[in-house]
Design a protein around this nucleic acid. Sequence first.
DNA 1: ATTGACCCATAAACTAGTTTAAGAAATTAA
DNA 2: TTAATTTCTTAAACTAGTTTATGGGTCAAT
Lengths: 193, 193
Amino acid sequence: MFAESLISHFETYLPFEEREKKLIRERISYRKVKRREHLLRTGEICRHYTFVVKGVLRMYGIDGNGKEHNILFASENEWLSDISSFHATQPGESNIQAIEPTEVIQIEQQDLYHLYINIPKLDRIFKVITEEKYVELQNRVFQSISSTAQERYLYFLSKYPSLGSRLPNTQIASYLGITPEFLSMIRKELVAK
Amino acid sequence: MFAESLISHFETYLPFEEREKKLIRERISYRKVKRREHLLRTGEICRHYTFVVKGVLRMYGIDGNGKEHNILFASENEWLSDISSFHATQPGESNIQAIEPTEVIQIEQQDLYHLYINIPKLDRIFKVITEEKYVELQNRVFQSISSTAQERYLYFLSKYPSLGSRLPNTQIASYLGITPEFLSMIRKELVAK
DNA sequence: ATTGACCCATAAACTAGTTTAAGAAATTAA
DNA sequence: TTAATTTCTTAAACTAGTTTATGGGTCAAT
């Protein structure tokens, strides 16, 4: 059953009792997302916390000139949500789209709050998950203010080796904050070495 | 008493009973930090979660060429820690230094864990605090891949209006990922308008 | 009052990354 | 299987941001 991949994800943090697993199973839903299908668009309220079972999602923003910029990717066993839109129940800026055919588990706001109340250790687990994601982002900020595009690309490859081959280079360039043309140049230079 | 500024910070999230406040008071310590004094240096284990009562701290990293880059600032009522070093009890890369004379409240790892166990709502509160900081960082990442230095500077000013006048421009330039010379040029252009 | 450390500004030469354009290669849809 | 679309590469002209150097202003400490 699809719920087991989520429960075993939770159990990498803390053990769960059957009673708790049952509560979780009652409050989650499963969804398939086609390649290029959107889960969220600018101006919509983000209604779900989304857990990737299989595939890859990207979260991106759109700048003043209408250009898309990848904020992050989420692949197997990762969480994704426009957190501020989700908690405030307000329209947000973010977009979420599948890059590959993707399967996800989703929790709605009221269900997640219900679970937080009935399974206090979920507060602990999401605190830890958010801290882990926070550290990742902080490293990325440091990279972005201290490193060249080539260094950022090598860091990305070392951090997400599978994504390096799985994603089109245009998506990676957008994540790195450079043009696809310049990424192409960087790759050429790296091969030359 | 110094503990009250921390407790009233917590109570902006959830109410606390006297029993819980007592537990907190027993587990925190107060410290004055001189201008330019360090709370943490590269290679050290980050032993504390630090709450700024008064003043401004900066967290910075050092790149391969020995140059410092400001990852973030923490001023009144903000938390700061090298989270991964703190939880892993392992040496980290980060540095934390006072920009102004600063007063902080600190919690050591064992004390924080003790509080998490005895006051479960602290898991909830730190989950929310970390989510808030996560959203801030995510916005900053989006800025860094989508905006010019001038736009990033204006965003910084709008987001932290007090810091704009309180900090030397060299510190702001380091945070924005540009040279002080270029920030100087940006400011000149903005004044000209 | 004077030194020294730091902070800010200006300018010229330089470099990293963008833009535009155009063609080749690879995927996807029909 | 072919047409259509997306992806990748190359190259030339351009722009945003760096580097180096120089000088002036400010502030805390003697």
